[in-house]
Nucleic acid binder design. Sequence first.
DNA 1: GCCAACGTTGGC
DNA 2: GCCAACGTTGGC
Length: 156
Amino acid sequence: MAYWLLKSEPDAFGIEDLKTRRNQTEPWDGVRNYQARNMMRDQMQIGDLGFFYHSNVKEPGIVGIIEVASTGYPDPTAFDPDCKYFDPKSDPAHPRWYLVDVRFVREMKRNISLNELKEYATTALEGFPLVRKGNRLSIMPVTEAQWDFILSLEKT
DNA sequence: GCCAACGTTGGC
DNA sequence: GCCAACGTTGGC
């Protein structure tokens, strides 16, 4: 069982959207980054937990918790010419992009902002990709210690 | 809206 | 295989 952090722009798809989706489950599609692809294809397992992070907003931060609801499978949006995520270099016989389904678990009791997380960039969260400058990974692994620490912040 | 950081592309 | 140019991410 592993832990993850998944970024999303709430203007496109936020925690509220996941919460109100049927079965509260949604394919995490549109990821076009090889590192993130590899994690979804090779590493993520049903039952893994993840933080849901809102990016590109006034106060970016962790807003909720999701559960991985499938193992990796080819991202169908890459095959659809009418979809903005279409990639002609991916086809069903040789899919280039993968995704997992994610299920809503709960919202955080409060937003754990990026600013707050950065306070621990040299202590409890040292090495955590999110608080490293210039980080652009849309999916990143979270260690159990980091997971527990961030959850403990929620109660403060 | 700006721009730093970084990944990808493509010419050579 | 190098690396300049380009596009995108995402905080501010």
